[in-house]
Design a protein around this nucleic acid. Sequence first.
RNA 1: UCGCCUAUAUUCG
Length: 280
Amino acid sequence: NTVFDILFRKLCVSKEFEEVERLLEQILGTGWEISTHILFGVIRSCCKTDKLEKAQNVMKKIEQYGRSPGVQFYNGILKSLVSMKKFHMAQTIYNHMVSTQVSPNLQTFNIVMNALCLAGKVEEASGLLEEMGKRECNPDIVSYTTLIGGYFKAKRVEEAMQFINQAREMGCCPNNVFYNTIIDGLCKKGKMDEGLSLLAEMDAKGCAPDEITYSILINSFCNEGKMNKAMEFLDIMGEKNLNPNIITVNTILKGFCRIGLFDNAIQFLDKMEERGCQPD
RNA sequence: UCGCCUAUAUUCG
């Protein structure tokens, strides 16, 4: 499998998809076990380069040899297509999946929800949320977080707030990602005070703020030119034994540069390098 | 019962 992995990787980056198909046919013909992540990688490469027909050929080939991919396999492919914003491709793969009697599960729906939100189709996304309830696949905290993030990005704060309440009413257990998404949404809509009160709430509810929570707040202070507040929160992070990561550092550098404090930026960069945070 | 796969921050790309 290690050899196959290297072989397929190289063939895919050189876009030798004809050769990929031939080789795959040979391997499957021998009945050898070939690991899922290799097949997954091949299909993903096809999709990435818009070789939809190739992706389908490979999929069919796998099926011919009785290796029908399960829902997890599809979820993995759908997720990477969605993160590449290849929505049309994702749609086709989804249709294929359904046509081969593989039922979408909660994760599949959440991926589709994310796709709709990223495509700015929040109405359809909230429609899906309802649909899920009807299909004995109740939305979970991930579904709600995705949808809420979508509404914030669509600048529809009121509706985002409604879904936050709905998530609570439905008894979804809030977690860090849920809080982080909301705090980010509020801060970016100039509602920092509300964001800060959620920070207190999450702490009180046993969701310890993490690196991402702080980078959201620091980013917000930076964008308001309040570098003293940003640095204050960096210190608070340190007190909680959370280390600033490359994103935290980049955020603060941007904050200094934005208002022309280049010396402070360089000073800060040096300090972080000393502390072992290499610039990227 | 427990894990796994899905959602959140910087780069206007």
